[in-house]
Nucleic acid binder design. Structure first.
Length: 712
RNA sequence: CGCGAGGUAGAGCAGCGGUAGCUCGUCGGGCUCAUAACCCGAAGGUCACUGGUUCGAUCCCAGUCCUCGCUACCA
């Protein structure tokens, strides 16, 4: 079907914290590539998003910080919005659900369904915290699991045995907020009868989207539908959110998952008076970009709501991505195991496209993927810099050296099949990239961009214009070949700008400046043309498109991740006993013995004895210790290792004075790769135990061992 | 427990009935215009495991194991 308009939504980020690169890779970057591509195709595009600012967690966060929920969302809305802008995520509007227009829109939506008599009213008994004077979500009730006896099971699930629970099943339930014993109170809520849409959903998704939607999305939906749908409450007891627009609904708000997706509609309304063209015309293609955890809401619940309301288009596709892990571990906002976008921008100024490249090339399209800083470096240095950046750079440098800085002409009499083949590759790449993007295969699309540059490098290498210039006896003829080769390379460069633009918009703009062409050249229909740059048009001197990532930067980022993690972990542990209100903190209760609040272990993958035997652990005696200049945390140690004296730089200066550790014996990882810190080469690492309070303790033999003794 | 997705060279991914390909990394060679880049070549995989169907399975079927997710603060 031919669509007249494309409406693109990206999941509303929860205004409870900043955005991290997992958000980017999973949702916002693919959405942006898609949107930019559609715009380049001159399609009528609206790309909408905004902050999701309702829900219980925000009230809890506000309570904890002693500020209002509005303060919480104001703070994070600003940070999130700025992160997106900086990264070039080209929303047509980035709105927020605390806006008046959103309250009105979602209330009107609710009222329509209510007037049509769609909701079922149900009175139920819910747990109520009399200390905090509020109803408790299932998640905020803790008690003993009736199945396995775990004392810290949640009201909806026991994490220890995995049983699905209801709060009533818990033995000795208590409030996670105040530890008060919750009491039951009757409350009324409005339920949306999802079950009535089962048949229709089966028709629409199971039969209609089988080969269209991604396997992970389709499979998840089918699983839901096969197991049968239940009516679902669309209201909650809370004072933060969109008030339920009914007389008898004091102290009740719309369930955050009811109002959040309507946020897409209100954002569109805020953007344009013609909003209904995008939401209510059958010739609009609606695409929701989300992460895999949102599948059920976007594929089952929201479409059912839209269907029930009537008059709205349904999503054509919901290309949900999987998750991105960081250095082998799941992203955890509460443990602070994440790479925050606003921090990346600070640490790597003007390198947005570098991150865009790496996240897109490694996007978790079919399964969870891992982001490592080493991979970030490798992909940047070996693909972006070496293949793409370098091709453009050598083309420009050669053109200035061999063609006096102007676009050289083509000499028809000397054009070879290889020249023609190179030109043909551009059109092939264009078609491939187009097909990939249209089918949400952004990784593959980006690969083709790089691959075209790779072919350009090969073409240059095969023709070697730098050699041709060295044979003066054939000057005229060779110059013609040089002209043709560089003409092709320059037109290819212009084409690369167009093809890369959806993925690497900052770079495409930079290339336009170098080529002195207007941005309009980037329109997709221009791809494949060989007259983008006029013959004898003078071009600017090349500027480097990307820079390499140094080893030091990688090490610093990994270090930063790990040190932030520790900080937050110990902070969380302190809170655990009094205020276990988030999942990650609750995890720690489960892992930790109740009576001994020790540092929650950071779980690592199991290793084999062979892995262990790779480590050369030895006892060393500290002979000299001195502070490292301009470093708060570092001590430079000289260790007697028996047969040698080693210099080791250790980050323990905050904990020990140099003079008080001389003579102490320590355990050293002797075969750790040497690393320079503050200009001093550190050869090894000393092992320390860390107390929950952050205090460091040497791991040493109980009695003096010979220096250099092996630890096994 | 059940359901969904995934488990293919050191890393990231393709393939989905005829014993495996791509990019990066590694190793060797070539070139020198270029951000020590580029080009050519090589090594490296019992396609998670166990059965079965088949003339033949990475690909189909059954079972097992592992990872992640599944009306929950997080994509």
């Amino acid at each position: 079907m031919e669509y007249k308009r494309v409406l693109i939504t990206a999941a509303l980020p929860y205004a409870n914290g900043p955005v991290h690169i997992g958000h980017l890779a999973g949702c916002y970057l693919p959405a942006d590539v898609y949107a930019r591509f559609q715009r380049a195709k001159k399609r009528d595009v609206k790309f909408v998003c905004g902050s999701d600012e309702h829900g219980v967690p925000i009230t809890i966060r506000a309570m904890k910080e002693g500020i209002s929920p509005q303060d919480v969302v104001d703070k994070y809305h600003a940070i999130i919005k700025d992160s997106f802008e900086q990264m070039g995520i080209s929303f047509d509007i980035y709105s927020r659900t605390s806006n008046k227009i959103h309250h009105e829109t979602s209330q009107a939506f609710f009222t329509k369904l209510h007037k049509d008599g769609l909701f079922e009213e149900r009175a139920t008994e819910q747990y109520y915290d009399e200390n905090k004077d509020m109803f408790l979500a299932d998640r905020y009730i803790i008690g003993t699991c009736p199945i396995c006896g775990n004392e810290n099971a949640y009201g909806d699930q026991c994490e220890k045995c995995g049983s699905t629970l209801s709060p009533e099943q818990l033995i000795n339930p208590r409030s996670a907020l105040s530890s008060a014993v919750p009491v039951k109170r009757i409350t009324k809520h409005w339920y949306f009868p999802l079950n009535k849409y089962e048949k229709w959903l089966n028709e629409w998704i199971v039969n209609g989207k089988k080969d269209e939607w991604k396997a992970n999305v389709y499979g998840q939906c089918k699983s839901w539908l096969d197991s049968g749908l239940q009516p679902r409450a669309m209201t909650r007891d809370s004072n933060w959110g969109v008030p339920v627009p009914l007389e008898d609904a004091k102290g009740k708000v719309l369930y955050v998952w009811f109002d959040a997706p309507i946020g897409y509609i209100s954002a569109t309304k805020e953007l344009t008076n013609q909003w209904s063209d995008y939401w209510c015309s059958e010739d609009t293609k609606l695409v929701h970009f989300i992460g895999k955890d949102n599948i059920v809401f976007h594929c089952i619940i929201f479409p059912s709501m839209l269907k029930a309301h009537g008059g709205f288009v349904l999503p054509d596709n919901v290309p949900a991505n999987e998750f991105l892990n960081i250095e082998g571990d799941k992203v955890s906002t509460s443990r602070n195991w994440a790479v925050w976008v606003h921090e990346y921008i600070k640490d790597f100024p003007d390198q947005q496209d570098t991150l865009r490249y790496v996240l897109c090339a490694n996007a978790p399209e079919t399964k969870d993927n891992d982001f490592t800083w080493k991979d970030f470096q490798d992909r940047t240095n070996n693909e972006l810099v070496s293949v793409f950046g370098n091709f453009v750079n050598r083309t420009f440098v050669l053109m200035h050296k061999l063609c006096s800085g102007r676009v050289p002409p083509v000499h028809d009499d000397l054009v070879t099949d290889a020249d023609k083949a190179m030109v043909a590759e551009i059109a092939i790449a264009k078609q491939k990239i187009e097909d990939y993007i249209e089918n949400y295969k952004f990784r593959d699309g980006l690969f083709e961009v790089i691959d075209l540059a790779r072919k350009g490098n090969k073409y240059l290498q095969d023709n070697a214009p730098w050699s041709l210039s060295k044979t003066p006896e054939q000057q005229a003829e060779n110059q013609k070949r040089i002209d043709i080769c560089l003409h092709v390379c320059l037109q290819l460069t212009a084409n690369l700008a167009i093809l890369a633009n959806p993925f690497l918009p900052f770079t495409a703009n930079k290339m336009c400046r170098m080529m002195k062409v207007v941005e309009r050249m980037l329109e997709w229909e221009n791809a494949g043309k060989m007259n983008l740059l006029k013959v004898s048009y003078p071009l600017r001197a090349p500027e480097l498109l990307f820079r390499k990532i140094e080893d030091m930067e990688v090490a610093a980022q990994v270090e930063k991740l790990k040190s932030n993690l520790t900080k937050t972990t110990s902070a969380n542990v302190e809170q655990t006993s009094t205020d276990p209100s988030t999942k990650a903190q609750d995890d720690k209760i489960v892992e930790t013995k109740p009576e001994a609040v020790a540092e929650a272990p950071i779980k690592k993958a199991e290793i084999s004895i062979d892995d262990f035997s790779k480590m050369d652990l030895r006892v060393g005696t500290i002979m000299k210790a001195e502070k490292v200049e301009k470093a708060d945390k570092l001590l430079k140690l000289e260790l007697d290792m028996g047969d040698e004296v080693r210099t080791v730089v250790s980050g323990i200066a905050m904990h020990f004075k140099p003079e008080e550790i001389i003579g102490k014996q320590v355990t050293v990882v002797a075969n750790l790769a040497p690393r320079k810190m503050r200009g001093i080469e550190s050869r090894g690492m000393i092992l320390m135990a860390q107390n929950p309070d952050g205090r460091l303790i040497f791991v040493s033999p109980l009695e003096m061992a010979a220096a250099g003794s092996e630890v096994r």
